[in-house]
């Protein structure tokens, strides 16, 4: 049986400070199809993606699944891939397009009292309207 330790001298594993050095404005030429770019606005932190047609899209930088900061998300084929759970959101609409874990965890994803694999979640990134003026990307 595990004994409880005296706790007066135990170290505490502290969280790292979340990075908050996003720029408050971006040039269209700063954007790339292979990475999301953070943007600090009055609406909060956003992520900007550049679609293959050259148009940018802006979304709140908060994953609707578990709340991760999408500033660290990957951008793959125009989709935003959350780095916490790998959920993939359309860069066009912000809708959840794939949960790669459904295939990876197939053996384990069996129905139970608390879990129903037949329910398809409808997570959606919150989109913000953008305009491009003189080469600068601005949130409306």
């Amino acid at each position: 049986m595990l004994k409880k330790l005296p706790q007066s001298q135990l170290p505490i594993l502290c969280p790292n400070e979340e990075c908050d050095d996003a720029p408050d404005r971006l040039r269209l030429s700063d954007l790339s199809e292979s990475a999301v770019k953070p943007l600090k606005t009055a609406l909060g932190q956003l992520v900007i993606v550049l679609l293959s047609n050259g148009r940018p899209r802006a979304f709140d930088a908060r994953c609707p699944h578990m709340g991760s900061n999408l500033v660290t998300a990957a951008c793959v084929g125009g989709d935003i891939v959350c780095h916490w759970h790998g959920y993939r959101f359309s860069g066009e609409s912000g809708a959840l397009v794939a949960n790669p874990n459904e295939a990876i965890m197939k053996t384990l994803r069996v129905p139970s009292v608390a879990f129903d694999p037949t329910i398809k979640p409808s997570y959606q990134l919150r989109e913000r309207a953008l305009e491009v003026e003189d080469g600068w990307v601005r949130v409306k």
Binding site: I12, L13, N101
Partner: peptide, 22 residues
């Protein structure tokens, strides 16, 4: 060591298997 969270949060993070690979 100590974690600055509740036991439920720590256990939840451990059992949240979908984040392991990502």
């Amino acid at each position: 060591y100590e974690l600055d969270c509740t036991v439920g949060e720590a256990v939840g993070a451990y059992l949240d298997v979908e984040h392991y690979m990502h």
